[in-house]
Amino acid sequence: MIIDGPGRSAIPPGTLFFSMSFDRLLLLLATLAFLGALGHAVVALRKGQWKESRWHWLPMAAGFALQCGFLYLRGQDHGRCPMTSLFEVLVFTGWSVVLLYLVVGPAYRLSLLGAFTAPVVAVMQGTALLLLPDPPSPKIAPNPWLETHAALALIAYAAFALACVTGVMHLVQARLLKKHRIRALFHQLPPISDLAKAIRRLAAFGLLLLSLALLSAVPLGTSISGAKLTSTWMVWMLYAILNFLMWRHVVSARVISWMAVGGFVVPLVSLWIVSVK
């Protein structure tokens, strides 16, 4: 294993273990922690032994700590917020998702949300580690406005990701209730009213952050490309409509959940656009 210091060179996709830098090792361990959280949840659910417990937070918290380590090392390396490539953007978004989960989960007693969040974050980080190139540190002077804009936007996207995950939980629980399938998962999933409330708050919180991100882009003038801004505005529009529909109660909770789940494709595409354009 080679442990790189600052100023490391480009790392091709899929580089693991023997030529792995320390920060990538932390990321790999974080991904394994999230997979461990998922595995633990699946086994506990299958045995019908899942209970609200602080121990469920442990693998998620461990993964989060390892993510923090990765981002810290990258921040040191770049001398700025580590969001310089799609690789890092995915990791930063994953970190934001776990951060929000650790905040939202206890508030709503949604420890099972971790079981649904863990695979999303593991897939994001796994994709970054295995499929994406990891370019060297860009030699660009830090711009606080740009970094604020990017960080706010990515945390907003994380809120949308968590709304998507909560939407999946709502759809599953609503279906179990409709079809009278009172199984182990039914007992573990939170009430549909609590899940609907969590979706509303996450979508509203994400929209607020994204609005702030767009406002913070104003002083940047032309330094953000049109494609990036357009895609971000599209995401903003989508979630503004979703929030309006929820506020006016125009559509059912099930439709809202489907929108939260399906709509997350738009932020994902936008992530790709803002990272490569």
Binding site: H187, P190, P191
Partner: peptide, 26 residues
């Protein structure tokens, strides 16, 4: 308690109704 689910699941009509209502409304 850790290895069984003896507390889970109501066994009377009234308590099943309550359990379901709680899964709808919290």
């Amino acid at each position: 308690r850790e290895h069984t689910a003896i507390q889970r699941g109501s066994t009377s009509i009234g308590s099943v109704a309550v359990e379901l209502a709680e899964k709808v409304f919290g």
